[in-house]
Design a binder for these strands. Structure first.
Lengths: 301, 301
DNA sequence: GCTATAATGTTAGAAAGCTGTCAATTTATG
DNA sequence: CATAAATTGACAGCTTTCTAACATTATAGC
């Protein structure tokens, strides 16, 4: 699990560790030799195809020898071509965007093998993917259901329990009749015995620590309760049982692997539900707040 | 250049030779065995990441043996995993793998008035700022304390209650003696009466809906309990009472304003604590998990 | 509960990919 | 045009990736 050590890229000269593949290639064009220029140009023109290449295929296409490709990669600061590919995978790159300067600055400030800088890249990459999910029709369907269904249950076990709890808690501010499905009773009758077409379920699941989610999903399916599953890439039963399955990116840099991404996705889901419900929510929130104040003796500002 | 020969796929049964990778994988789910389903699901969830994988890495991630991956690819009509990748290239080969490009695409939608696109930019900006916070010495001090103090309490009220709950829940996996401070008892004696120098408090607070946090902070201060405060820019008492104050960026695009950012910051804090504690945590997690299994009748994989 | 069959893992060896050494070629410089 | 330096390719050996044969485990039928 925790063996990864990709933060110390082997760069003899200790130069820019944080530049993107694209930037390195562009930079190299200035000083590169003929063969190297050919390789760099090909790579730049085919960045999207690179992951499919290997030193050999690339050498053949560009018309240079295999070792030259390897050497060129070294001159860019990678140990081998494979490492260049790996970097391609999640590096956000150096394109100018809203926060570009700030991000660049942050990266520059942390030159030598900063775990956080790398981690930040991964998180941004994950965020982009999560937002892409929010554009699918499954997403819209789930949002609509979660906004309109009379009852909503959220469930998650072990490491995902906190997530489910959080989600249920926040959703309660947006709409009534939300609860956390609890294993406390030993069964899940409150969900499974709900009247037909009255309830739906949001299930948080991640591999490794619990299979309760699977059996709950099975039973819910039997009871014809729609399931929105938020999981990682290792779930092998989601396609069969869930109505929508949102797969969060799984990274191996953070201890919590996908939990952070689940939180982001959960928040985005809540936000979408809010948009679906419209401003009436604001009123509800004030009511809830007022109630809270009445019982604790405190009021909002 | 013209060497590709993907039209004569070796398919014993002579079935559909033209289907896309995705379609084949989906089809296979119907008849697949357990191991195969696991592979197919992982592939479907990670189509974008596949080009970077190799049989071995894939097998490791999915939890099957290398030959099983190869055999599965054959059952789909490819000679080997590499051929499946090659096919992928033709089908979605010109889709951007680079997260940066996808982000660019997303941002272009921003100009067309896509709310999500704007929101993504704000979230990325916020994320960068949160990572900046993680570089301060206050952060390190808080992390150290949260890793070593005998008891840790987390608290949050109203909209931040879920956050505190989540944080406490996750932290329990990392270390013992973590609890959520609850308003249920009407006072907070479990925190405030803790022996000197034995407890610390993580407080989530955001403007508007509760002032309980303020009075709890006051009392904790009196009792000499160190406070780590996570809040938004509107908190005007944090500097007086808290030992560390982490201010998450507040945006006005999302309904939840700063809650999403709090979740990110909380996750980052958990991750830092994990790093501080070291790998011993892994053991603890397995123990907790095993206990869970003993009581629910389920075990991890 | 036993046997036959299918599914999956293990091991070992073949194939492909990568790098180091050294020789051939090109380029730079006088 | 000659020579030195840099660049590049060819080949060999090492590593990784993949496959084929066999062993083991799970599943289904009786």
């Amino acid at each position: 699990m925790l063996e990864s050590c990709q933060f110390m890229k082997q760069d003899a000269k200790g130069k820019e560790m944080t530049e993107s593949v694209r930037a390195r290639l562009s930079d190299s064009l200035v000083t590169a030799t003929n063969a190297e220029k050919a390789i760099a140009n090909y790579m730049l023109a085919n960045l999207n195809g690179l992951p499919f290449e290997t030193s050999a295929t690339l050498a053949a296409k560009v018309g240079v020898s295999e070792p030259t490709v390897g050497r060129f990669c070294r001159s860019l600061g990678y140990a081998r071509f494979k490492d260049l590919k790996a970097d391609l995978r999640d590096n956000i790159g150096d394109r100018p965007w809203l926060v570009g300067d700030r991000l660049k600055e942050f990266r520059e400030r942390n030159l030598e093998g900063d775990m956080l800088a790398r981690s930040l890249d991964l998180e941004i990459a994950a965020l982009v993917r999560i937002y892409e999910i929010a554009h699918t029709k499954e997403w819209k369907r789930a949002v609509k259901r979660l906004a309109t269904m009379p009852k909503v249950f959220a469930a998650g076990f072990q490491t995902e329990r906190g997530m489910a709890q959080y989600f249920a808690n926040q959703l309660q501010y947006l709409r009534p009749d939300v609860s956390l499905a609890d294993v406390a009773g030993g069964n899940f009758h409150e969900i499974l015995m709900a009247p037909p077409k009255s309830a739906c379920l949001v299930l948080f699941e991640a591999r490794r620590y619990s299979q309760l989610a699977l059996s709950l999903a099975r039973e819910a399916r039997k009871a014809k309760i729609p399931i929105t599953l938020i999981t990682d890439a290792f779930c092998d039963w989601g396609h069969d049982l869930a109505d929508e399955m949102f797969v969060v990116p799984t990274e191996f840099d953070m201890f919590w692997e996908s939990t952070a991404q689940m939180a982001s996705l959960g928040n985005l889901l809540l936000n979408s539900i809010f948009n679906e419900l419209g401003v009436s929510v604001e009123k509800r929130m004030n009511n809830v707040s007022e109630l809270h104040g009445r019982f604790t003796g405190y009021v909002g500002e």
